[in-house]
Simulated scan of single mutants.
Amino acid sequence: MIEFIDVEKKYNNGTTALSNVNLQIKQGEFVAVIGLSGAGKSTLIRCINRIHDITKGKIMVDNVDVSKLRGRHIRKFRRRIGMIFQSFNLVTRTTVINNVLVSFVPELPMWRKVTGIFTKQHRTKALEALDKVGILDKAFVRVDQLSGGQQQRVALARTLAQQPDIILADEPIASLDPVTSRIVMDDFKRINQEMNISVIMNIHHVEIALEYADRVIGIRKGEVVFDGKASKVTQAILQEIYGGKWESDQATEELTAHVQ
C-alpha cells in the first residue's frame, strides 16, 4: 500500500506544488492522475520514489516511511518501483535488448558493470520482458530504428525486467499518436491485471484515463479535489478539476462518448 499523510511539497522558489495530500493506493490498482499542466501531477508521482523529497508529512509504502530511507536502503527501495517517462530515456545507438539489460546494472558486481557482461539469466529475463510487451522480434534491432510507440514499449520492458511492485508513468503517451497510444495503454492495462502491479499514471488524455484507469485522482493547484472511480467522473467534476477550463466541444464529446 502507498499512503500519503498530510503531504506538502514546496520548491526552493517558494512554489507550493502539493498541499495537504492524503491518499491511500492499494496494491494492484490502476490510478490515473489528471489536472492542468502545473497542477502538481508529476510532483505527486515523483515523490513516491523520492525523485522529489516532500517538505512536510509522510509517504508510506508498506508501512515504511520512504522519506527516512538513505543510501543503499533507498536504492533497494527504488528497485521495487519502475518509472516510465514521456521521453523514453533510452540509448538509441544500441540494441533493444541492451536497453532492457540496463535494468540489472544496480545489482551487478563491479567487474560486470565495468565490462558490460551480463549473465544468461539476465538475458533470459530481458527477452521475457520484451515478449510481454510484444516486441521480442525487435530484441537485436537498434532503438533508433523503432517507432515512438515501439520505443515506449522498450522502456516498459526495461521496467518489467526489474520485476517491480509499482509502475509510475509520467505522461507515457504524450508524444504518441492516438492509435499507438492505445496499444501502449493496452500493455499497461494487461500488465496491471495479469501481474498485479500497481500503475499510477500522470496523464493529460482524460478520455483515455477514464477508459483504462480504475480510479481517478484529480489535482488542482496542488490539492486533491477528486478521488474516486473513473466511472463516477462527470462533466461537473472535470470542471472542478480543471478550474472551469473544461469547456471545449472536443472535451465534451470525448466524455459523452465515454459515458455512453
Rank of each mutant, 00 (worst) to 15 (best):
V184Q: 04
I191W: 03
K58L: 11
K125T: 14
V224A: 07
V64I: 14
K221I: 12
T256Q: 15
N63M: 03
I97K: 04
T55I: 14
G57F: 05
Q250F: 14
H258F: 15
F85M: 10
G40K: 01
N20S: 14
T92R: 00
I203A: 11
Q239C: 07
D249Q: 14
M60F: 01
H52P: 15
T252W: 00
S248F: 05
Q260L: 06
L168C: 05
G40A: 07
G148E: 02
V216I: 15
K26C: 13
I25M: 05
L127D: 06
S103L: 08
H122S: 13
S231C: 09
D131S: 11
N12L: 05
L90H: 03
S181Y: 00
R182Q: 12
A39G: 12
I54Y: 06
T180S: 10
L156D: 05
T95S: 15
G148N: 06
I34Q: 00
G40S: 10
I217K: 06
Q86P: 11
S67D: 07
K120V: 15
V154K: 02
Y212T: 14
P172H: 01
A129E: 08
K76I: 06
T119L: 09
I117S: 06
T115K: 02
T115I: 11
I167A: 06
G35S: 08
I54Q: 03
T180F: 00
K125I: 15
V102R: 01
V96H: 02
V66E: 04
Y11S: 11
T256E: 11
Q121S: 15
R46M: 07
S67T: 14
L146G: 10
F226H: 14
S231T: 15
L136M: 07
A39V: 10
D177T: 04
K68H: 07
V66H: 02
L210N: 06
A39R: 00
F118W: 09
P109F: 01
G228A: 08
Q152N: 11
Q162S: 13
P178R: 02
A251K: 02
G28W: 00
Q151F: 04
I219T: 04
R112C: 07
F30I: 03
I200Y: 00
V33K: 04
D6T: 10
I48M: 05
D62P: 04
V224R: 01
